[in-house]
Simulated assay, not measured.
Amino acid sequence: MSDLLPRIYPGFNSLEPSFNFMGKTTKGKCDAHVYHSQDDTYTAIICTTQQSEIHKKVLGDIAKLSSTKFSSKIRRVLLCVNTPIKDEVEDYRTACGLHGWELDPLSLERITRHTLGEADLLLNYFGELSPRDPASPLLLRRFDCGNRIKEARQDISLQISRLIEQIDFPSEREWKAIESGEVEIAELYINALSALTGVSGAWLKHGAGAKYPSEVIYDHQVSKVEAIAAEAPLASYIAIEPSSMDAVLIVQFSELRWRVFPFGFSLDFWDWIGDQHHIPTIFKLLKSADRLLKHPYGRVISPSLMKEFRAEEKHPSISFKKSGYNNYWFDDLFDLYHRYPIAKDKYRHHGEWFVKLQNEFRNYQIDSSAPEIRDADDV
């Protein structure tokens, strides 16, 4: 798990396991932890191979975390078990919630799925089961797609020497031969390039479908935002185009892997006819995104750039460079009520669209008799 978790979660390179002098994990308060310097928080990691009374064991391990010296700074508990996780996960989530911690459970199924994508780990730990085995379909199956491989590498302006180091490819000369069309590329390395940059494996192999596929988030899909947050992204942004009131979530998971998540609704509620009952659900979704993603920065973009983000043809980092500067419209959006009349138009500088959007949320989401206090400006 010490080797695998940094592959799953960008930013986990600082993972510290609790090893004793024999290399065995100790019976400490947690099996490992990760410190997140950007917000001075921790992820506590619990791993267990116990088969019987696992429910009791996990609850006991969660309870022990409250005695760690960094318990007040724990943001998330990562639970790794070598069994399936069923509805008892709600008990684990409740136990973490009592301390204000989020829970991310990694069951046997999820761990297996992630491990199968890590060729070198399979080689080190399982030998004959490795995709690097000469008999492996991932090495036997090759594709003549060097032109698209080259295009994907150039999209992120990455030198060949750096790329082969990132995906553990054996030869720079051989990679150049692949890009020139002289040699076919094994599926193993196509998958590795896809995982590194977010480029579609189907597009690389067949030229089919979107090059950088996006994933739509609909109004009821808080769980999708939770899954994004569980990967501990480096940064996230909400971009809006005011003429259409379309919005997208842009997430940077690592230096090279970015993804775009368009919202499956526009925010021009004042033009809606008969669908206003969705507004409270949308408010809940956006507020969950604000909380789970640690207050994404806002961006206000042009119609042409919104179209570019949704076209799925460019690496999101390329489009993002055209999106201007950070502002706080998304964070300010949830400040629906003010104590003083002078604050009535305090956010008008964002634009008339922002004032109208805030008014719609105010009308449909929160009872005005119970105003919400968000920060010192409201006190």
Rank of each mutant, 00 (worst) to 15 (best):
P134A: 10
N147V: 06
I160P: 00
S136E: 04
S171K: 00
R153S: 03
K150M: 02
G117E: 15
G127E: 06
S171L: 02
L140Q: 15
I167A: 04
L139R: 14
S171M: 03
A135G: 08
R153D: 05
A152S: 13
P131S: 01
D120K: 08
P137H: 03
S161L: 06
F126G: 02
D168L: 09
E165C: 10
F169D: 00
S157V: 04
T112G: 13
E151T: 08
R141A: 09
R153V: 10
G127F: 05
D155Q: 12
L129P: 01
R113K: 14
L163P: 00
D120C: 02
L116I: 11
D168K: 14
E128M: 11
A152H: 04
E172C: 10
C145M: 03
L108R: 14
L106E: 09
Q154P: 03
G146Y: 08
N147F: 01
L158Y: 01
E151R: 09
S171P: 00
I156E: 02
D133W: 10
Y125C: 06
I156N: 01
L122M: 15
P134D: 06
L123P: 02
R142L: 01
G117M: 14
E109K: 12
R141I: 12
S157H: 12
D133H: 15
T115E: 06
Q154Y: 02
S136I: 00
L158M: 11
G127N: 02
S130W: 05
E128W: 10
P137C: 01
R110V: 12
E151G: 04
L139Q: 11
R110P: 05
P137Q: 01
A135N: 12
E118K: 09
A119I: 05
Q159F: 05
D144Y: 06
Q166S: 08
Q159N: 03
N124E: 14
E109M: 10
G127A: 05
E165R: 11
R142H: 07
L122S: 07
Q159P: 00
L138Q: 13
D120L: 07
S171H: 05
D120Q: 07
R162W: 04
H114I: 03
L122T: 01
S130N: 04
R148C: 04
P131W: 02
R148Q: 05
L116G: 10
N147C: 08
F143W: 15
E165S: 13
F126Y: 14
